[in-house]
Design a protein around this nucleic acid. Structure first.
Lengths: 353, 353
DNA sequence: TTGAAAGCGTTACCAT
DNA sequence: ATGGTAACGCTTTCAA
């Protein structure tokens, strides 16, 4: 590998002239610059990444941290990491994926050794330990997801509230006036990030605002059937289901409705709000506002780049939701005319007969 | 961030003593070492990654390069990248994912700037440009996959040929004598991804060797049905399907057979050869020899680590295939006795009746 | 057993 | 417009 000294010798100039000719950080007589450039090309010179980093204190590397347990969803994990990586590259940064067994330890190691110019934190929980590291450390950090206390941080997330309003408005436009939200099981709500709570609150608020009858159920992963029973019992004539739940429930809700002779969207409309699609492999089969990495990651990287450049950034940036249609929303059925084919108070067995 | 000079001052020793006390590269009076360690801990000292790299010429970073084609299977892609990353971390290396639009350019950039101690090359094609870079460059490199000419390289791959023979022999043992290989679409083959070609060649060779009737079809992702038609037309009485195709085809082949009244394995046996399982999410539902990243990636990283340490490594390391049984292989149906339930020349509609 | 100092290859400041 | 050179923070050789 040729060094800058080799180039200087070859071009008959000093080292600093080579550095400046290449970086353009000060004006060089164009004739000299040509000579330097030619010499550099001849020797296939490229500055050593580490020497450059040591001298300039900028590595042009971004670290990405995400907890990685045996039960982690590798796909979602990598989908986010990949989106971040591509966005970072577009801004001239390479990314280092920290996969230490302990995400906190990995982030700490990166911070302590000045491994990166910036960090992206994925899979953020409400009381994430890494928040503390971000506050104490000196590496600019952007969270994708909102911890409970965002004080002093930079966070990017989907605007779940707006997404919920979008979903409800779409349904109202189709004539629906009785809706149910299927949310996460209580156990998950307790330890996960707080967006399910935000989703639920906005559901109740905006339904009230639009004069819509609303009910919320929070089934366990195997509780899709019970949830439908509950909806039928508590709010018969419900014609629209909003989903912000675990995938097990989302996946069984279709078959469960079918087994009751209820079809989508003729009898009931279904919308998924803020659920992560399994990308190309098995996209959610419902209309909805997906929590898509392609939406949030580029924004997060842009903010990180700005922060690394010293800019002041708002603590929370919400990304506008996008409604995707897959044909599971239709006009509201006239409940009075055909109660049997909506979520009525009848038991599943009776309906099926 | 505390520097090594801070620690030296704090401990009342010289800089080199701190360095040696921390690295253990020469013996230090234990009392002195304790003092240094205590000082380092007190100041939360951690060596700067870039200064360390510049001085030692070792970055402890491994770069991973993989081209991103429009039809890339992102899941498989990420699964490999993730396996490499975790294996590398286990050996003390961090991983840089090169996602430049042009994989060659990305690898070149990494090489020129001495970005990494070593490289892992994924998604290798028969005449991969990156081979040339690996030969000319001075960064130890390991290919996961085999280019046509492996001279001077280090490559790791599943032993597809052995896998194919394993699959065919298993089917022959069950009495099958007419087989069809469902391979990748022409677009993928055209890019000269290498292993499908090897799989196909060995299929034809070993079928001939075993006296088995053989046919090859190469459907587009949505062409499972057409592929079955083609097999039925060109080689009626086929009782075994070997799959080495894109996941869309693999996933629809089961339902497609079912819709024709053909059941697995009673009427037709199915084996997947060298396909990447969707890991935890949805393992391939077929008997077969999976191309599991967990098999090849750790081996590749181990070889890379050895090469970085200066060891001589064989050019090609093939990982032994493992046959996994899931009940989709059974005895061959007697075609003459019941032609209608095999892949006969009848149209799907007629068969269904 | 320890210390001093010469690199490692850049960047960027201070001169000219 | 260009050159000299002191950092950058560490590893490692050479001395003692």
């Amino acid at each position: 590998m040729a060094t800058i000294a080799d180039v200087a010798r070859e071009a008959g100039v000093s080292i600093s002239t080579v550095s400046y000719a290449l970086s353009g950080k000060r004006s060089i007589k164009s004739e000299t610059r040509e000579r330097v450039l030619a010499a550099a090309a001849r020797l296939r010179y490229a500055p050593d990444a580490y020497a450059r980093t040591l001298a300039s204190r900028r590595s042009h590397i971004v670290a990405v941290t995400a907890p990685l347990h045996p039960d982690t969803d590798h796909y979602a994990h990598m989908a986010f990491a990949m989106e971040v990586t591509m966005a970072a590259r577009a801004s001239g940064y390479d990314t280092l994926l920290l996969v230490d067994d302990d995400a906190y330890a990995g982030m700490d190691r990166a911070e302590e050794t000045s491994l990166s110019d910036g960090m992206i934190v994925l899979d953020v929980s409400a009381h994430d330990e890494r928040v503390e590291l971000a506050r104490k450390g000196s590496t600019p950090t952007v969270f994708i997801g909102l911890p409970e206390d965002t004080e002093g941080l930079t966070c990017v997330d989907l605007d779940f509230e707006a997404g919920m309003r979008l979903a409800i408005d779409e349904l109202v436009a189709q004539g629906h006036s009785r809706m149910a939200l299927v949310t996460q099981p209580p156990s998950v709500l307790k330890r996960e990030s707080n967006y399910p709570l935000r989703v639920r609150a906005e559901f109740e608020r905006h339904c009230a605002a639009r004069g819509v009858d609303a009910i919320v159920v929070a089934p366990e992963p195997d509780g899709a059937s019970a949830a439908l029973d509950e909806i039928a019992a508590q709010q018969p004539g419900t014609t629209a289901l909003l989903l912000n739940t675990v995938s097990a429930v989302a996946q069984s809700i279709g078959p469960e409705l079918a087994s009751r002779g209820i079809s989508i969207p003729a009898d009931v409309s279904v919308v998924a709000v803020g659920m992560t699609p399994m990308a190309d492999r098995a996209p959610l089969p419902f209309d909805g506002i997906p929590l898509d990495p392609r939406l949030t990651c580029p924004v997060a990287v842009d903010l990180l780049v700005a922060r690394m450049a010293g800019a002041e950034i708002p603590e929370v940036t919400l990304v506008a939701p996008v409604f995707e249609s897959r044909g599971t929303v239709g006009p509201a059925r006239d409940v009075a005319a055909d109660a049997a084919r909506t979520l009525a108070a009848a038991s599943p067995r009776e309906v099926a007969e």
